[in-house]
Amino acid sequence: MNRGRLLDMGTNDATMNMAIDEAILRLADVPTLRLYRWCPSAISLGYFQSLEDEVDQGACEKMGIDVVRRISGGGAVFHGAEGEITYSVVVAEGFLEVTEDVPASYERLCGGVINALQLLGMDARFQGINDVVVGDKKISGSAQTRRYGKILQHGTVLLDVDIERMFRVLRISEEKLSDKEIKKAEERVTSIRKEVGVVSSQRVAHALARGFEEALGIELIPGSLEEEERALARTIRGKYGSDEWNGMR
């Protein structure tokens, strides 16, 4: 069986989390699953999103919430320090047979999250383009970028959800709410806690590792960042803290 690397449950601030994902994307030469958390809580913004339109920066500052732009597209995500686990998976472009077909590659990689949630007792399924739902409620969203001959997909798995806090820092347009056909946000989102009660983050992390092993058909060996990756992450971290990058659009 092919082997890959498991990087388990580091906690960093937003700039370092995004710098590590980019460093792995640039340098990793084996399939890598990284599981991590955010402290302080943060909003990550999709590459193409407008900082001003999506985020109430004043509220973020008051509440001590970081804001960072991702190298991947997609929507804004609130990463609560306690309320979620983020995963990132990096594979060579040739690794997935479905690489050319972007939606199919989301489905394949989201399979890791689906397997994990099923292991924890939830009836999770894929909902295109990039979500995982339980029932008809979103529990996980993901975003991909493709560079350096590799695919990076990162996404969040909700342990608990604090919609009120999320809404205080994200600017949710009326348009978007009406697009979703009047359903309240609380009714559209769920969490592991809501579905099966409190599960420790370690247990969720373990399930994610098993889930991705199955989805990718590889064995994940616990490892750590290579010194080169660490050094690169330290170098590029500055970009993720800069107004030039975060205010780019």
């Binding site: 193409f48 999103q49 339109d53 597209g73 929507g75 383009i129 975003a143 493709r146």
Partner: peptide, 15 residues
Amino acid sequence: IKITGDFFMHPEERI
């Protein structure tokens, strides 16, 4: 002109 939103484009910087 600046186009923003929650779509995906590969490669991103081509926007």
